[in-house]
Simulated scan of single mutants.
Amino acid sequence: MNRRGFVAGSLRLKTGPHRVLEGAPWVYRGEMYHADLTPGTVVELTEVNGRFVGKGFFNPASLIAFRLLTRDVHDVIDGAWFRRRVRDAAQMRQDLLGHKDAYRVVNSEADQLPGLIVDKYGPMLVVEILSLGLVPFTADIVEELVAIFQPQGIYERGDVPVRTKEGLPRTNRMLFGTMVSPVHIIENDVVMLVDLADGQKTGHFLDQYPNRRRTGELAAGRRVFDAFCHTGGFGLTAAKHGAQSVIGIDIDENAVARAQENAAANGLNQVEFLTANAFDWLRKESEKGPQYDLGILDPPAFTKSKDTVAGAIRGYKEINLRGIKLLKPGGILVTSSCSYHMSEAQFIEVVRDAAKDAKRVVKILEIRGQGLDHPMLPGLPESRYLKCLVCYVS
């Protein structure tokens, strides 16, 4: 132990510009000199001249080899430190969201807990551990979550590919208590049944909750289509808030079955869900001309690397072109992209080009993003991945 607290070793930045010096919490493997250090350990990072930068996790197996924990030279990185970070993250959500039934409790780097995701679903917590360095502190993290929330259970979703790159096993397990899945939550006055064990991500796309609410506010009296509907969050919110009719389309038959269950649980009889390829449905339906008053496009990420952005742009343009053609004059299009590599400017250009080809005038009413429980870091543009445009089509 010294004045800088315990560290297992040190890393030194190479000469040159580095994002970590401008506020980013990452350093790539090729940016540093390092000795033979144990993967997953807490290390100290310095500039080439020896000036202290911060402490963080080191894992040479990952392209992002250093993940910043703190820039405070006096911080001691131990179990108590992680407990404080978890407590601070939870307190921020409770202050901002009150007694919301389901939300993100910890959002990785944005909460100074790189690689840690914690989502709350009613009586359950779902955890993702995506950094090898978190393993020695997992027990402390779980104990703090139990102390704050008194959950019925804490379930770890460990079946994500990035764990392989970190040297972590791809297994799911209970970390505390007993499993409840599926679990009922209430979001925007809609009852949703969420599959924590086998659903996408941690069970539900929590980041879109404010955009689903906004869509509901615009839905009264409108005929609605919801393409890439997953378990029905957008469409059901529209129906709950007075939509005349809703049709939802998704290629995942399990998601569609769950969407149908959710519609029944809410007594929403004006909703229909179809198992179909949303691209094909949009193309065929748009050939019939304008039929709807509100359209929702919430596809999965079309690109996860810079190399495939061109193809993603074509995909986004196609669905937005078809979506615009389906809307009557005065219709509303709510269109999203969760692809970080598709910038906001590029996404707006996609909608512009789709409107031009559709020979329609499109006005952007709002530019939205992820909810308050998914904070972003100014120094990490990657943390602002969700773009949602609310557009008026005339």
Rank of each mutant, 00 (worst) to 15 (best):
T215M: 10
Q94D: 09
R214G: 11
G177P: 02
V20M: 02
V118C: 11
V160L: 14
D75K: 05
G115T: 09
H18K: 03
P39A: 01
G295H: 03
R360G: 08
H34L: 05
V350G: 01
G289S: 12
A8V: 07
I154Y: 03
A80D: 10
R384N: 12
D307V: 15
I77L: 02
K55C: 05
D250R: 12
D198A: 14
T38Q: 15
L196V: 05
K387M: 01
V127Y: 02
I332F: 07
V76L: 09
F137V: 09
P378Q: 09
G167A: 06
R223V: 11
E272K: 15
I247A: 15
V27R: 04
S10D: 13
T202H: 03
R360L: 11
W26I: 11
D78H: 10
D207C: 12
G267H: 01
V180P: 04
R4K: 11
V127Q: 00
F279K: 12
K55P: 02
F149T: 08
S62H: 15
R222T: 04
L372I: 13
G16Y: 00
P60L: 04
K120P: 03
G9Q: 10
T231K: 02
E344C: 06
E253K: 15
V7E: 07
R170N: 12
P375C: 04
K363N: 14
K356F: 13
Y33I: 07
A355I: 00
Q291I: 05
A197E: 14
V351P: 01
R352M: 12
T308K: 10
A90V: 05
V224I: 05
V86Y: 04
G233A: 15
I148Q: 08
V160K: 13
E272G: 13
V361I: 13
E253T: 14
V27S: 01
R71C: 07
Y316P: 05
D189M: 08
Q291N: 07
S108N: 08
E344W: 00
F58C: 00
R12E: 06
F205R: 09
L69E: 08
A255G: 08
F273G: 09
P114C: 10
D298T: 01
A257V: 03
M179G: 07
R214T: 08
R29H: 14
F66S: 01
L193P: 10
W281E: 10
L132E: 05
D119P: 09
L11K: 08
H18Y: 06
A259G: 01
T335D: 01
L274Y: 12
T308E: 14
V106D: 13
Q91C: 12
E128K: 15
N59E: 02
L326P: 10
G371I: 04
Y340R: 10
R93M: 14
P300A: 04
V42F: 09
N254G: 02
G371R: 05
R84N: 00
A89I: 06
A264D: 15
D72K: 11
M174V: 03
A312S: 06
R93N: 02
K387D: 00
G242D: 08
V246S: 01
A358H: 03
E128C: 13
M32G: 12
G122T: 00
K317N: 13
T303H: 12
L377W: 14
V20D: 06
Y28M: 11
T178H: 09
V162T: 14
T46Q: 13
Y209H: 13
V53Q: 01
P136R: 01
D226Y: 06
T202W: 05
R157W: 08
R12Y: 00
G311Y: 13
